[in-house]
């Protein structure tokens, strides 16, 4: 019910009525896609449907409700809480995070100035990605990323939409809270795109554990250094590393004695080795564990786990599938 309210309150009157007429289990709703003059699309339980003119999920395009310019404008007004100006930075990055941690992707006409994005105007494409935190999805990987006295530097490698952020989020929660055998650790999260904590007005909407400090909307490099100076974390977590500056900041974090959890886009360790910037990470054995995800059947399948030397510690083909996460 809470999720339903969070979604309905950011939709304009027309769309709200349509969704109220549609019987939806909001836990299964993945995305709502709004495009001007095009049908309203819902990705529900992993499948794409249209929302009908009279409400309900339909497969026929002719029966679908087509979005007007006013629908998009009014919805955008509600998404931004009537204050587009307050989300200038987020709009420049192409998304806004709303209450509940749901991520609203925006596209329109980009206003560029001296090669840099200044703003996005005429926003007529909106993608509402419904946040689903999967509590417990990191439990199967915990034995591989920590032992009695330490946590390993861990890199999650996954293709886009492979579930790496969901897995990282739960790893943070588990390490932060601890359990009967392992004490909880202080975790610092640099959440550059508000995906991990999904902070709304600074308050995390996802559970990242009781010993977690979050730097929201902060550039990764600056954030990692700030956390070390100010919050004395034992573990630092960052999402989607890729630039040379990120790698240098990670090296600094490790030299400071912190453990690091990070994610990167890729298909395998070899794929990472082929990327000039990231190759250094593997060759210098900066990370002690590599978790490779695949999304062949569903997002979040753990394909394999490697150690720093490249030895396979877990293989989904020879052992049972570790866990399913999505997102």
């Amino acid at each position: 019910m809470e999720k339903e309210n969070e979604i309905l309150c950011i939709l304009c009157k027309n769309l709200r009525k349509l969704l109220e007429k549609t019987e939806l289990a909001y836990d299964k709703l993945n995305e709502l896609r709004l495009r001007v003059h095009e049908p309203l699309i819902a990705v529900y339980d992993g499948r794409e449907y249209f929302i009908g003119e009279q409400g309900g999920l339909v497969r026929e395009r002719e029966l679908a409700y087509r979005l007007s310019e006013a629908d998009i404008k009014d919805t955008l007004e509600l998404i931004s809480n009537y204050s587009l100006y307050a989300y200038e930075d987020e709009i420049r990055q192409g998304f806004i995070t709303v209450e509940g941690g749901h991520r609203i992707g925006l596209a329109g006409t980009v206003v560029a100035e001296q090669g840099r994005i200044r703003n996005v105007k005429n926003i007529y494409f909106i993608n509402i990605r419904i946040s689903h935190q999967i509590t417990g999805c990191a439990l199967p990987v915990l034995p591989y990323i920590r032992d009695a006295d330490r946590v390993y530097h861990t890199l999650i490698i996954s293709p886009p939409r492979g579930g790496k952020t969901t897995l990282l989020r739960d790893m943070i929660r588990c390490i932060s809270n601890g359990d009967g055998k392992n004490a909880g650790m202080t975790v610092g999260v640099v959440d550059e795109r508000s995906e991990l904590g999904a902070c709304y007005r600074g308050m995390p909407q996802n559970d990242l554990g009781m010993r977690t400090d979050i730097l929201d909307c902060c550039p990764k490099v600056d954030g990692m250094l700030m956390l070390i100076r100010s919050m004395a974390p034992q573990v630092i977590a960052v999402d989607e590393i890729g630039s040379i500056e990120d790698i240098e900041a990670i090296a600094y974090v490790i030299h400071c004695g912190c453990r690091i959890f990070a994610t990167v886009h890729g298909m395998s360790i070899d794929d990472i080795k082929n990327k000039p910037v990231l190759r250094k990470l593997v060759e210098e054995r900066i990370f002690e564990r590599y978790i490779v995800l695949k999304n062949s059947r569903h997002a979040g399948q753990i394909e394999s786990i490697f150690d720093a030397m490249g030895n396979r510690l877990y293989d989904s083909n020879t052992r049972r599938e570790a866990y399913g996460v999505c997102g």
Binding site: C9, D74, N81
Partner: peptide, 12 residues
């Protein structure tokens, strides 16, 4: 405004 009952800013 915080309630966001699907009304536009001008209406409110």
């Amino acid at each position: 405004l915080m309630d966001r009952r699907s009304a536009t800013f001008m209406e409110l």
